[in-house]
Amino acid sequence: MVCQPTEEQPQWGGFIAGRSYKPRNRAMTHANLMNNYFDLNSVYTEEDFRCCYRMRRHVFERLLCDVQQVNPYFRQKRDRAGRPSFSPHQKVTVALRMMAYGSPADSIDETHGMFESTCLDTFQEFCDTIVQLYKEEYLREPNQEDLNRLLRKAEDRGFSGMIGSLDCMHWDWKNCTTRWQGGFSGRSRKPTVVLDAIASYDT
């Protein structure tokens, strides 16, 4: 018996010889997104936008502008067939949805018409770009100048010696492996990760 060589399946789906192509209407999904959230007379209000995106629209627009300047991946190009690729609004929206809601990549296809592999690439590019953009300002340890400023501000408000407010939350770990679930489960009996943060008056 001779075994026929089989083509290795990509880790995250994607194109495989013999698999039928599913046409996605990128232009239509972009138009729907703009009509819902970004056009002058959009369907959803500013408060709806904040609820859905977990940020205000002007913050999203600044983020959108910044990532396009740093990473060409977020600029709209044309594919091999000459059609416009996913728009910057679509790519950043998909990355934020995956991050804010923990949406799996394969579920994005239904609402945004983006392949699972493209979703994962977009999410990776977005995370790398955010670190590159903001690590010097937001993703670093406070230096002595920062600490002195925070201590002065707290003292002016009657809290001498305090640099910030400690807060924590339990984040549900939906994809926790079975063997680790016991060590990460508490009263809720669901695996969670505790996130701690010290928030200053300006962050």
Rank of each mutant, 00 (worst) to 15 (best):
P10N: 12
Q11R: 12
G13C: 01
G14T: 06
F15K: 08
F15C: 10
I16D: 02
A17D: 13
R19D: 15
Y21R: 05
K22W: 08
P23Q: 12
R26N: 09
R26W: 02
A27Y: 09
H30V: 15
H30M: 08
L33Y: 10
M34P: 04
N36A: 14
N36K: 15
N36S: 15
D39Q: 11
D39V: 08
V43R: 14
Y44D: 04
Y44W: 02
T45V: 06
F49V: 11
R50Q: 15
C51A: 15
C51N: 15
R56L: 04
H58D: 14
V59E: 14
L64A: 09
L64S: 08
D66M: 09
Q69K: 05
V70I: 05
V70F: 04
V70S: 10
N71W: 03
N71A: 05
P72D: 10
Y73K: 14
F74W: 05
F74G: 08
D79G: 07
R83H: 06
P84S: 13
S85P: 05
S85D: 07
H89D: 15
K91W: 04
L96R: 08
M99N: 04
G102F: 03
P104Y: 05
A105Y: 02
D106Y: 12
D109R: 09
T111C: 09
F115T: 09
F115K: 13
E116H: 06
S117F: 11
D121K: 03
Q124T: 13
E125M: 09
F126G: 02
F126W: 00
D128A: 02
L133H: 02
Y134G: 03
E141F: 12
E145V: 13
E145I: 14
L147G: 09
R149D: 03
L150C: 11
L151R: 00
R152F: 15
K153N: 12
E155Y: 10
D156A: 15
D156P: 02
R157K: 15
S160C: 13
G161T: 04
M162K: 01
L166T: 14
D167R: 05
C168R: 10
C168F: 06
C168Q: 03
W171H: 01
D172A: 14
C176V: 01
R179K: 12
W180F: 11
G182Y: 09
F184I: 05
S185G: 15
T192L: 03
V193A: 13
L195N: 05
D196H: 15
A197C: 11
I198F: 11
A199W: 11
D202L: 07
